[in-house]
Write a protein that binds this DNA or RNA. Structure first.
Lengths: 198, 198
DNA sequence: GTCTATAGGTAGATAGAC
DNA sequence: GTCTATCTACCTATAGAC
């Protein structure tokens, strides 16, 4: 793996675990096995490193989400099933969301080039979920009258907040509970599938 | 206001806006109008300051939540109404939750004396909401078969995640959308009250 | 109680040799 | 491309005078 590559990956890990404010260039160098001069040769500084790391992490989130939310147009399952698959997929719950956690970082929010990709990613996710809810409404899967954009926001918020509850309690159980509650509300009467966690 | 008091309040503000890692003793002193020596006379260091600040903030959260969730045993409104009041109450949405944001701080999670009050507070909130959902189920307000603890987790997660969405987009609208979606799911057919925000 | 002095360590880079 | 040296500022205290 190239030095550039190792620097980006090290930054991704540190941003995920410690946030932007809690991540120092020195820590990135140590983790990447790169020297000071090497790091500043490849990147102009901490913001540039963070931009590269965030770009990759947001791409990954989109790809992972799309993998459960359903293929390219082929209706592979009901809307409920696709949303359930998204909610119940395996996650490193106790680590939190690598994108969502950035919103609590004041220095990220203050820099438009760092905030924008975070905003666009969560916005894309809400839009994608809203499309699926709309499909479900048209097929009569959900209670008529629900607002697709609102339900999409509720779904994403439940996931983001589930991370908070899980981290506070030190256990993924709280995340799972929130998700199961949401699925029960979405489809009254249906059996909620089990989470992948033991 | 005493120096101790000003130090605690300054720490609360900074923890809320910048987190634990992003808050320095010097910044606290500046905001409190206290000198270095003065601060270290009243508190042993940053962790002690944070303990005092978190204790006060969690007390405040409990009091504020209890104010909307309903009085001491007197059923002042339906379960749905009390949950709606909690969800729709005025909040400084773009600032995030002063308790929930602490869960993303690695240094807070690593120190048991700082993590415990956060955990206990969110746990209390979930328990309190579960009681109310239980009441609502007994009165037939909600779809039979719902799990009170799960729904309570969904409610708290939606709030915590709503803050994330709002901060990402720079607008409280995303918070409100998530809340309105949740209320619509909780009581199909009912009109969801408007949020207090303009 | 509050102030100033001191101190070792890190943050976030820049400069220039190799 | 990578390394070492250097730099200013800030972090998180401790010590001791007033």
């Amino acid at each position: 793996m190239s030095t550039t590559e190792r620097l980006i990956e090290a930054t991704r890990e540190l941003l995920w675990d410690r946030g932007y404010v809690g991540t120092s260039p020195k820590a990135i160098q140590r983790r990447a096995g790169a020297g000071q001069g090497s790091m500043y040769h490849h990147f102009s500084g901490k913001p540039a490193l963070a931009r590269a790391a965030i770009a990759r992490t947001t791409e990954e989130l989109r790809a992972t989400a799309e993998a459960t939310l359903g293929g390219s147009g082929s209706g592979s399952g009901s809307a409920y099933d696709r949303i359930a698959a998204y909610l119940l997929r395996e996650r490193e719950v106790l680590r939190g969301c690598p994108v969502g956690r950035l919103t609590m970082d004041p220095d990220i929010m203050a820099d438009e080039t760092l905030r924008a990709p975070v905003d666009e990613t969560l916005d894309w996710l809400r839009g994608r979920l809203a499309e699926i809810v709309q499909e479900g409404l048209e097929r009569g899967e959900f209670t008529a009258g629900l607002d697709p954009a609102e339900i999409a926001s509720t779904v994403v918020a439940t996931v983001q907040g589930g991370y908070v509850l899980a981290r506070a309690s030190g256990s993924p159980a709280a995340f799972d509970a929130g998700v199961r509650g949401l699925l029960a509300l979405l489809a009254p009467g249906r059996d909620v599938p089990n989470s992948p966690r033991p």
